[in-house]
Every structure is written in C-alpha cells, then in structure tokens.
Design a protein around this nucleic acid. Sequence first.
DNA 1: CAGGATCCCGTACGATACTG
DNA 2: CAGTATCGTACGGGATCCTG
Lengths: 125, 125
Amino acid sequence: MTTGGTVSEVSEGISVLAHSVLANVANKWALLVIDTLGTETLRFGQVKSRVTGISHKMLAQTLRNLERDGIVDRTAYATVPPRVEYRLTEAGRELQRTVHGICHWTRSHLDHIETARRRFDAADA
Amino acid sequence: MTTGGTVSEVSEGISVLAHSVLANVANKWALLVIDTLGTETLRFGQVKSRVTGISHKMLAQTLRNLERDGIVDRTAYATVPPRVEYRLTEAGRELQRTVHGICHWTRSHLDHIETARRRFDAADA
DNA sequence: CAGGATCCCGTACGATACTG
DNA sequence: CAGTATCGTACGGGATCCTG
C-alpha cells in the first residue's frame, strides 16, 4: 500500500463497512427474506415455507445477519415449543421498498431475460 | 418428490429461472457495477477503477453475466489497443433505479448499522 | 487494454445430528 | 419448533500468466 494518509484510511474504513453491509444485504436469500417479511410478522417456520428453496441453515444465518444489522426484529417467546417471531425494523421497511423493486423487476422481466440468455448463448457458439 | 403435477413443474421451472437471475443480480459486485454504470457509457478500465476493490476477474465475470441477461450492452471496437464500452440497456436502467435505492440506503444507514452491530455483538457476550 | 485460462485457497452452503 | 455444531463438497474469488 502506498497510500498512508489518514483521509484514505478513513474512507477505506467506510468502504470496508459498506462492503460488508452489502455482502449481507445484497445476496439472494437476504433479498427474498426481506421481501417476504414485508409488513408482516412471521415465525421462523412461516418464513422458511414462504421462501422457496432456502435451507434451514441459510435461513437461520440470514436472519441472524439481518438482525445484527438492525434490519429485522427478533422476538422469542419462552414457551414450549418455542415461538420466535420476525419483523422488519423501521430501517428494514425502508430497505424493503427498494428490495421489493428488485424482486418485482426480476419477476416482470423473466421472459425478457430468458430470451436474452438464449440469444447470448447462441451467439458465441 | 411427491408433487408430480405439470403445474408444479412449470412453477418450479419459473422459480429456478428467477433464482438464477437473482443470483446474478443480487450480489455485491453486480449491484455496485449496475449502480456505477448509471446512465453513463464506460470502458472496462473505467468501471474497474470506479468499483472499489473489484478484481479483474470478477468484473469481467459480472459484466458477462449482466450482458447475458440483457442488463448491460457491450460494444467492442476493433482497434489496437481494443476499446470496449459498457452501458445499461433499457431494462438495465429500470433495474438501476431500484438498485440505486439499495446502495443509497446502505450508505445512509452505515452509522445506524454500525451501532446496531455493536449492540448485537455486545449482547450475546 | 480487454479478457480468457489456470491454479489454489477459503468460504458458502446443504445434509445430518443434537440441544432447549 | 427454533437454533447450533459438525462435516464434506462445491463454488467463489484472488493472483498470475497468456492472447488478440
């Protein structure tokens, strides 16, 4: 590293944090979980059944990361069997609006993308 | 598998595509590249220097995936040295608006998140 | 300069099993 | 039911070298 200035150190520190946040937020499972939660309060199992294809492990991990970043709120009831509810925080709901935009864009462009892929794959053949 | 109906086969086929699209779009580098392109037309090297921390390989890979999905447009000029320009397609610009929302949310919530993380990490200690 | 090919390590992720 | 721990495999992603 040839930088060595305090300014660049600070700005790099910020970008490191930003990158780690993006790594948590900008991945398939996190997006789907955030979009699924929406304005609802759901139990672990409910989220799992609504997010198609997510594994038990990945859901737990994703929820923990989102909780850690203050995006989802976790409430555990000390009952038997245990009951744990998840909901988006205020910041989480702000994020959810733009996240929903991506999910919506994806769904509405599926056929567009499929043909684009076919053209691309045929081109370099 | 106990499903076996044509309906579920079709819906699963759709979700498989959706998941693969999300896997391309919903990752750190793709988001940053899309947000960086914005409304501009940039050369490979320009994108690379603007997306902090991306490696040569990941940029090439990300741009190829985005091109394949019809999100970015690639124009190569047969000059020496070669000159390749990237810009968002129409669909890509639609996506860019919501992607920008995520990047903006991340940037404006950095300190909020940092404190949330500290509280979380301190709690389970 | 753009970008593919190869090597190699670390991590993500699924499956499974165990605890409260 | 919710969550953690362990294991094994497969993929992500960086470094490096090579081509048009």
